[in-house]
Design a protein around this nucleic acid. Structure first.
Lengths: 203, 203
DNA sequence: TCTTGGTTTAACTATTTGGTTAAATCATTT
DNA sequence: AAATGATTTAACCAAATAGTTAAACCAAGA
């Protein structure tokens, strides 16, 4: 038993990831996934009973990558400012590795948000401790006062947006020069940290 | 001639906008557009020969809304800081009016960027003057020094991201409370201005 | 009123696509 | 080597879908 199972399943997952990320759930074709995995459609349905089930597997995998274990950073007893810096570093590094993630997640969240909700529920992800930590830092005068929600959205947005809007930025700001875009994106780590730290420093 | 033409065409455009924005090009169905416009499929093809042509019309319309006439603001002789504030105000107001735009544009740009490129080309949109203006302000010590590209992406990203990520923010930060989310988004104008101005003020 | 030309419809077609089935194949165990 | 059970395939099916066609309709001008 399990003759070439691991191998085939892996090939399917790789192929499906490529196709779903590029075309989305609606644009993806089971035939294309089968072709890219070097198998035929029936085998695809043998491993993953339906397109929806296959998509769920891929989506869950990719959401898992997108919402990484920043819990460790946040639960450490580093000063808040260093925590924020570490989150930015970790997150931009992740996005440099998987630049297609933001557009994919945004696209599929807008189509059907329930798989994402299930994921969050399953992982028991809670944002409240983060808000509390930031609120405390504000009360202590370590960072400037606002609603913690805004600060979190600002930080994540500054990290994520350039990747989500990559094709536009590439065209408008860099006239299609992929090298220049890549250079720009790799500068984001330093740039976002500088920008955020300056913005939140108390008077 | 042109008996009810205007009326019907308008109904089609409204219906197609709804459906394309909600489902995207791949997920949209001509039948659903026809139903929503209160006509049948053949009439849809009579007005817009193909799904692609209809989509192009809608996409171009929506990109036109997304890249509004901020030229006037930028070409005025207001101080740079006030220009930046005005751009943020204008942009967030726009997004509050059309909150679905960012996700739609990101989604469709990733599928096929050529309609967007054509639009930019046709409108003769150039980013260089904006970069030059910011560079000058940096040289004059009015704002802190960076690559202008980063500043532009930061400002746009802070405005746009919360709208693109709406479903996630709504769930994670507000537990599905639409009212709370709307309140949060309407605070962004003030928040982003505060955040950006603080981040770019010279030492 | 009769013609004309744009408008609208019902019915149809060709193709694509997700999914099924029954048979063949292959590795492993007895 | 024979049996077993997982794996793989070719051929097929039903539903959905973009697009077509030919005829009916309707408002306006001659």
């Amino acid at each position: 038993m399990e003759v070439k199972r691991d191998n085939t399943e892996e090939k399917i997952i790789d192929a499906a990831t490529d196709v779903f990320v590029q075309k989305g759930m609606d644009g993806a074709r089971m035939q294309e996934i089968a072709d890219r995995a070097g198998i035929n459609k029936a085998l695809l349905h043998y491993y993953f009973r339906s397109k929806e089930k296959l998509f769920d597997a891929i989506f869950t995998k990719l959401v898992g990558i997108s919402f990484p274990q920043i819990g460790q950073i946040l639960q450490s007893d580093l000063p808040v400012l260093e925590k924020i810096e570490m989150v930015i570093d970790t997150y931009v590094d992740l996005l440099l590795k998987y630049p297609f993630l933001p557009a994919f997640i945004i696209k599929e969240m807008n189509r059907d948000a329930t798989p994402f909700f299930k994921f969050i529920e399953k992982r028991g992800f809670a944002i409240a401790p983060i808000f509390n930590m930031l609120q405390k830092a504000m009360d202590d005068g370590v960072i400037v006062k606002t609603r913690p929600e805004h600060l979190v959205v600002n930080v994540i947005g500054l990290c994520v947006f350039p990747f989500a809007a990559r094709p536009m930025i590439n065209h408008v700001a860099f006239h299609g020069d992929d090298k220049a875009l890549k250079q720009f994106l790799s500068e984001r780590k330093v740039e976002v940290k500088k920008f955020v730290l300056k913005a939140i420093q108390p008077e």
